[in-house]
């Protein structure tokens, strides 16, 4: 199998033949997907807010959509980082904001009300996904997982602490202090 990284190895270095199971869990991967989704959506909202406002019949609110785009980018970066749970929770909060904004566009006079409703259903689904993923990650990274042990018997000194104290202390010349 071809592995790009093998190109930079020197002659005697091992090269990958086939890859095995990863330390990434399915929740880690889902978080990564959601993070990239945030980045994509954020970029669209920031650079082409008209497309969003036109589709949803909310012309004139491009400034707000841009701000949401920025928010989405921040959430995306956080979700792609090691602190993905904080990123996902910030996405959940953002989803809430999106819902409120969409709901305010759900007036009968809006010819795009159908699209708005569809968008709300989608945001609802994604919010559930964000939340579930955050919960999964919380469980997976919980430090309380596994046995609880205290290591009160692990001094590391086969002859005991008293014997260990100062055995490696150097004999020191008397310190040069001000003489009286």
């Amino acid at each position: 199998m071809f592995h790009f990284s093998n190109l930079v190895r020197s002659k005697g270095d091992p090269k990958i033949i086939s890859t095995g199971p990863s330390s990434l869990t399915s929740a880690d991967r889902l978080a990564r997907g959601l993070g990239w989704f945030s980045i994509a959506l954020g970029t669209l909202e920031l650079l082409a807010p008209h497309r969003v406002t036109n589709a949803l019949g909310m012309e004139g609110r491009e400034g707000l959509v841009r701000a949401y785009g920025l928010r989405e980018l921040f959430a995306g970066v956080m979700t792609l980082s090691v602190e993905k749970r904080a990123g996902l929770m910030s996405r959940v909060a953002g989803d809430g904001l999106d819902m409120v904004t969409l709901a305010s566009e759900l007036r009968p006079s809006n010819p795009r009300a159908g699209t708005v409703l569809a968008a709300m259903v989608m945001v609802g689904g994604i919010t559930a996904l964000d939340y579930m993923c955050a919960q999964d990650l919380k469980a997976q990274h919980d430090p309380r997982r596994g046995r609880k042990r205290l290591y009160t018997d692990r001094s590391g000194f086969p002859k005991g602490i008293t014997a260990a104290k100062g055995v490696a202390a150097l004999p020191r010349p008397t310190r040069s202090t001000a003489t009286t």
Binding site: I16, I17, S18, G20, S23, L24, V82
Partner: peptide, 13 residues
């Protein structure tokens, strides 16, 4: 990031 795998690789020389 966070992706360590137990791979099969060629032996070092």
């Amino acid at each position: 990031k966070e992706d360590i795998r137990c791979d099969t690789v060629s032996d070092p020389e």
